[in-house]
Nucleic acid binder design. Sequence first.
DNA 1: TCTGGGGTCCTAGGACCC
DNA 2: TCTGGGGTCCTAGGACCC
Length: 401
Amino acid sequence: MTRTILHLDMDAYFASIEQKLNPALQGKPVVVVGDLKRRSIVLTASYEARAFGIKTGDLFWNAQKLCPQVIPVISSHHKYSAQTEELVALLEQYSSQVEMTSIDEGYLDVTGSLRLFKTDGEGLARLIQKRIQDELRLPCSVGVAPNKLLAKLASGMKKPMGITVIRPETVQDILAQLPIEKISGIGPHLKASLNQMGIMTCGQLAQAPLKQLEAKFGAIGRWLKACGLGEDDSPVKNAGDEDTPKSIGHSTTLPKDTKDRRVIESFLLLLAEKVGTRLRKAKLLGRTITTTVRFHDFKTISKSHTLQEAVDDGLSVSKAAVRIFDQMHADRPIRLLGVTVSNLADSDGTPYLFESMEKGWQVARAMDAINEKYGKGKIRRAKVLDAEKFGVLESAMPGKK
DNA sequence: TCTGGGGTCCTAGGACCC
DNA sequence: TCTGGGGTCCTAGGACCC
């Protein structure tokens, strides 16, 4: 049976939300950035900013060169997630199968909804787009197709405020000349490998022998062939089907490269505390700790260790992270540090088995309670102050860069 | 115009067990 | 003493996405 799948993609999401909430930003070149440090990049550029050539991933100071009057806004994730909750509530009025794949895009299987709303896929797409525009005052683009692969492809074809329909009978024509890299999942490396085999378009990919693709790409080969043919039978998951996360981590690019152990240890603790807070909030415990180090030349290494007991407090995580760091012998200036916890399981609020650990658990919860009551970051471990001071003191010093 | 931070999935080798 | 094959877990790295 032919399905009707919508892929909804919010246009310049973070920037659009900021413009909606602050009328002074409307019609202006706006970029949403993580912060305003030297190495900060553009997370989202409004369409006005894009007109100047600014795009996601640009360094902020480069964006400023392209457009001196560009207005930076510091991102606030909670604001955007709250908006997404409203969006999902609206979408769920049109299907019980709504699968958000990130904060700003998702799929709807509306096969069973068309009769109810007395329209076709395109009609329903228009209806939903209009309601999002009228009620949430946000622009979005929608792709309509018989499966997720093609719906995603379609939503990217016309932006902003676009609606693109791919009908079963037009699939072949559309794919014949379509460059393979337009397919979500075919990145620079896959593109290069396929191009080397003489495969440039989806049409050519469809012609390639399955055996040859599997020999070269393993499990991916089968998926590639299906992409060439425009086939994808993966279902749209039901809302609320989201499984528990596989990992929770934080990383940060340091204000400047460093070899200073005190500073490194302090940042690892800061990151570990953030991870711990999120683990407890999600009622999860993790056993595997991974420390990531990126050097000045962008070479990135990681090392992990699996503990006997699962943990959810920053101190335990940081102890492991520091121990791992010491074993990495990273004796060069470091650009980025990361701490990730994986091998997660539900905690159900149970404390650790070991008494020594139970203390860390109690301290962590006491800190959560205080931060909850008096505001984020009101209480922190003394050691993280080293990290907070690092890079700040110099930039505060007049005449020194 | 040297490149953020949050993730997922896959691979491949080694340890270890049966 | 040396041999096989299957399964699971752990670890490191890489590709990819938003």
